[in-house]
Design a protein around this nucleic acid. Structure first.
Lengths: 416, 416
DNA sequence: GCGTAATAGTTCATCCGTACAACAAATGCG
DNA sequence: CGCATTTGTTGTACGGATGAACTATTACGC
């Protein structure tokens, strides 16, 4: 009737682990590490104590461990113009522990190494055409490139904490399995072993998800939002959700497929089988076609055409709508419509547009914002913001490297 | 140049608090409490030690505190047929600490008291017509009812740990502000003070969100999923997202507005101003109208009509499509389409249909599942499941009370 | 019926990590 | 030059988890 007292072997749910003494140390190490990394101006030991609420003595011992682990570095003591012993500013250690971001996409593969300060230590991007490519060959090539860079930074005394491989497709980060990457023509394979990087821990992720993480670094002038929807437009359209600076992945990491939200069931048939998906209006191919340009033309040609249209408009030639207008308008309204659904379902008020949309934003913004204001139920009560992505090109490389370094910060005890 | 060493008063982000000694005790108390409540069969102190990894001595002191706090109760010692001292099974304490769920909806108001075992200790539901009602009068009435029940259970020696008020509208749980509840005709008010329950802590929440929490209790036969999308269909259509047994609320708790996902931009105009919202196909009014019934007829009339249609169909009268068919089909396909968008954006594979949809599910399932299988990108790789809600009527009352009790479990140290 | 093994629960010395207070170090200011 | 002020370190105290030893209570074999 009852099994009370029996040690049950079938653990129903693996709940949180019991808290021991060393759990305290681990948590506080993390607290200190995060504080050092996230504060705009460097803090001293005493400053960290005030910021975290820990005692100065405790902070001292923790900081000493982080310094010994080469995660934190002491700057020369500086006196802030006040009386008292000068403080020792503590900063993330440059060129010590680094993260490696890898990516295979349709038109390039690449690798980027970031250190804890966010600096790019090394980078290699190789253009190519990987549509319908052979995963074994491509991944071996990327693996060779990664090993080269890895050896280089190791020779300079740095430690590679891990790597993330960004792929444009349905990826399960937990199992390491790529289900399908339509634009690469890859399916049902385990990419990590094919890289041949036995020594470093590599995990895979969706390209848009990692690109979103790159946004968390913020721009030169504008701070990164804590929660946002990141939409990356290219041939396909992917999205990622960041809530409180953490990726929201759903059950398997297959969320954010905004490209196949139906905008109009009477619209053109999509490659996925449905009709009127967003991709058919705001995907790169659709936008190019609407502008009368060849589908595989570079994005720049669309941008110049749109800019020319603006110039003509400013010159007073209002009568003639340009090809650019025809291109931008349907994409903008369709994107706005899909984003309105997204915001209604998620309640995240900041939308970051990446990929091709970053450059096209001037011609999309008005339509997107108008549709959002109309269609988002909470619009009267909240400031919806549409902004351009701040991270530069190949953002997924940066995001992947950042994710590795975030993992280091989340468990600095592993490095002491 | 640098402010190192300055205790900064402007805390950039209120990160996690520093871990002290008592943090250990709090976390482990929570661990034990959750284990007692979530395990199917009652465990003894030794069983808990094995399940949590804590030492038997530690578990003993923690359990003693929980028993003293009246959160856990010891059952008579039972021997499982094995040698050794008989074990003392530990169970959630009945009729000791209780949670209070409150709700105002269009056609009723009510209150329900649940104890830690999940039993309904007391309940009052008052039918009414609160469309375009006066919030002050209605909330005072509910407050009176709540105080009555609260006094009753207090007289029986129980402690009311808190209350949750469920409302059908845009609600910000953090500020306690109701922005708008269209079907009640309420807007921009703070409902909690109007209840007049000064002594107990009351928080507000959206009705669908709390109804979703009620699902976590599971049914008599079927276990509750850990992550699911809960859709509650009535006049309006609301949804909630539960991930790992926790509500996902977005930035303000205004997510899940699936009723205004656009299914067809060429569709009928919605009250929200857009065209072809899901509500225009699968809202109760739309379904009634499509079935040729008066919009305010009870749901049961639609169900009987549909059942009659089935009977006619079984009788071989295949030539004549019934009015029920006309009602169910557009609603089912529209619902499937909006859910497909939802799943594509969220990657949560289990969908629980509540409200009116629970009873209508037999006539919706085929269409919903067919559209999902077509439109969800991950459908080939994951088992999508559509199931009926398990919680009974007025689920938000149960969910609200459960949320109060969950808060108790999350911080049992406050009760020792 | 009794000894032994087995299991549950408790007691106690120990260890670990944080807190607090006292102290040393280093600076500005009158 | 002395004093106030702030930073960083040292030493003691305290809270909480641990493991071993101990008690309590049963089943089982002889």
């Amino acid at each position: 009737m009852t099994t009370a007292g029996t040690a049950r072997e079938t653990t129903t749910r693996t709940g949180p682990a019991a808290a021991r003494q060393h759990t305290l140390r681990e948590r506080n190490l993390e607290l200190i590490a995060r504080a050092v990394f996230e504060v705009p101006e460097p803090l001293s030991r005493a400053g960290l104590a005030a910021a975290t609420g820990l005692a100065r003595a405790t902070v001292s011992t923790l900081v000493d461990q982080l310094v010994a682990a080469r995660l934190v570095r002491e700057l020369p003591a500086v006196n802030g113009g006040r009386a008292g012993r000068p403080a020792v500013p503590l900063v993330p250690a440059p060129r010590s522990v680094v993260g490696l971001g890898l990516e295979v996409n349709v038109d390039y593969l690449g690798a980027r190494v970031l250190d804890l300060t966010g600096d790019v230590v090394a980078e290699r991007v190789v253009p190519g055409a990987f549509h319908d490519s052979d995963p074994t060959a491509v991944l071996r090539r990327l693996g060779d490139l990664a090993r080269e860079m890895s050896d280089g930074v190791a020779a300079a005394g740095m430690t590679v904490a891990g790597a993330r491989l960004a792929l444009p497709g349905l990826v399960d980060p937990r199992t390491g399995l790529l289900e399908v990457a339509p634009n690469l023509g890859w399916s049902s394979l385990e990419p990590v072993p094919l890289l041949g990087l036995g020594e470093t821990e590599v995990r895979i992720a969706n390209e848009a998800k990692l690109a979103a993480l790159a946004e968390l670094a913020g721009g030169s002038d504008v701070a990164a939002p804590d929660s946002f929807i990141f939409v990356s437009g290219d041939v396909g359209i992917g999205a990622a959700i960041v809530v409180d600076r953490e990726l929201f992945l759903g059950e398997r990491g297959w969320n954010g497929e905004i490209g196949h939200v139906v905008v109009d069931p009477a619209g053109p048939r999509c490659s996925c089988g449905a009709f009127g998906c967003l991709e058919q209006y705001a995907g790169k191919v659709a936008m190019m076609r609407a502008a009368g340009l060849p589908p595989d033309a570079p994005l720049a040609s669309l941008v110049t055409q749109l800019a020319d249209g603006d110039a003509a408009l400013r010159a007073g030639d209002r009568a003639a709508p340009t090809a650019g207008d025809r291109a931008a308008l349907p994409a903008g309204r369709a994107l706005g419509s899909a984003l309105a659904d997204f915001v209604n379902l998620f309640d995240v008020a900041t939308i970051v547009l990446g990929g091709a949309y970053t450059e096209l934003l001037p011609w999309l913004r008005a339509d997107v914002e108008a549709v959002l204001a109309d269609r988002v139920l909470a619009a009267p009560f909240v400031d919806l913001e549409v902004r351009a992505a701040q991270a530069g090109p190949h953002a997924a490389l940066t995001g992947g490297a950042r994710q590795v370094l975030q993992a280091v910060l989340a468990d600095p005890a592993a490095w002491v």
